[in-house]
Design a protein around this nucleic acid. Sequence first.
DNA 1: TGTGTCGGATTGTCGGACGATACTTCGCCC
DNA 2: GGGCGAAGTATCGTCCGACAATCCGACACA
Lengths: 256, 256
Amino acid sequence: MTELAEKFRRIHSTPAYQLVAEAIEKKILSGGIRPGQPIGTEAELVKQFGVNRSTVREGIRLLEHDGIIQRQSNRRLAVSLPHYERLASRTTRAMVLHEVTFRELYEAAMALQMATIEGAARRATPELIAAMQDNIERTAPVLDDPAAVAELDSEFHSLIGKASANRVLQLAREPSDLLGYASTRLILGKVKEGAARLLQAHRMMLDAIRRGDEENARLWARRHLNDWRKGFERTGNGLDQPIDSIYLRERLTSSS
Amino acid sequence: MTELAEKFRRIHSTPAYQLVAEAIEKKILSGGIRPGQPIGTEAELVKQFGVNRSTVREGIRLLEHDGIIQRQSNRRLAVSLPHYERLASRTTRAMVLHEVTFRELYEAAMALQMATIEGAARRATPELIAAMQDNIERTAPVLDDPAAVAELDSEFHSLIGKASANRVLQLAREPSDLLGYASTRLILGKVKEGAARLLQAHRMMLDAIRRGDEENARLWARRHLNDWRKGFERTGNGLDQPIDSIYLRERLTSSS
DNA sequence: TGTGTCGGATTGTCGGACGATACTTCGCCC
DNA sequence: GGGCGAAGTATCGTCCGACAATCCGACACA
């Protein structure tokens, strides 16, 4: 540890493809190009930036990957609004690599669920309440099918997220949901009475939301999540074990 | 709307560069290559995948951009753990584009702050408590400098995040913090007594954390955030206005 | 030990090329 | 005149080959 004086900042030259990406990104974020508007073809960008097409391509790939630009049917590039799922899956991947534990996830999910359902109780629209009702009705007949119930559970929570009318909460909550699906399916396969309790909790939550009863909404959300924890521990897993990629929802839906 | 029978799923071929990225990503997430281990040079990947170097480059750029692979000093590619800031800045950008409101952000921040400081009160280490103490001591002499106080405020909250020992919460909270910095600076410039109140709140929060007093920690975190809201409204801004890229913290630190 | 030099490896960037595919235009036929 | 199919055009995905800049390691030298 010779403690050298740190006189200079580390030198760091930015490659051209990054500059291309940053230039476009800045223009978009500052509102210079609005979502839906075209960016221009690769050839045009080549002319404007004065770099090779390969370089331009490497640059726009980054933005395309982030979902802030997209190809339209023409194949032309246009600004677009990034989808939540894209961000959420990024975050989930990071969490898997960091080997965060189920306990960390559980703690965060608890805080976010509370806030989300509170928002839902305050602001849910009739349409969303109807959708939740429908979800519950579809759940009742398939209580014996863990995968189906887990799927509907996931949908139910997604609906609550929408009902909260708070996109920041939705965004923050999504990673927990991604992992929730697989573990819920696992739990329901093992804990037979789990599905019935889950449905009951959903019913009570919806009821509270319908009445704008924030207190009871929170109460049942808390119980619901507590059930999840107990069930999870009953499957023989510990909360302190790191989450694993097996819990990542497979991308059956192709795309990406 | 001729409602054709939908016999087949829409055909959709994935470009080669995406397949390259997915192949490497899958290998990493499944634990086939652990963080720190090398991926191989571009030339090697060209041979393995049987595609052109340009294609390989477009593929690895994506993973590099996500932060799950990085170039070492050799310039060779190696698996790495994505940094939180990278994910957070992605998320923040998305929120700006979606034009989420300060209210949404405030609501989420409230829920997350509560959970975070509760965790900090339970699990803060002596080192982190010392760091927070140090932060407070550095704040006192610069109360007149909005930018400096905002900077230290941001650091303080980051320390609380670390002290919570919950990386999921840290990840979820970071976007709110990114936006908090600029608005806090703005507020402190306008509301003169703001800095003193902020420091007082920090003191009480640290005190509660030190004593493991979750209740008071939550209480002061709530007050602190309420102060922020009141201050924000006093600057003439409304909570219901969308956040804007001007509130994005500039990247003075270069890098990325 | 510290420094100058050299060769090899690897990346960033370039220029050009080709086939595939989607959009456009145009002429033909009813 | 309008619908329809064919040709033309635009754009992208992929490939090839190339070169300079830079970094690493080794080696000689003081």
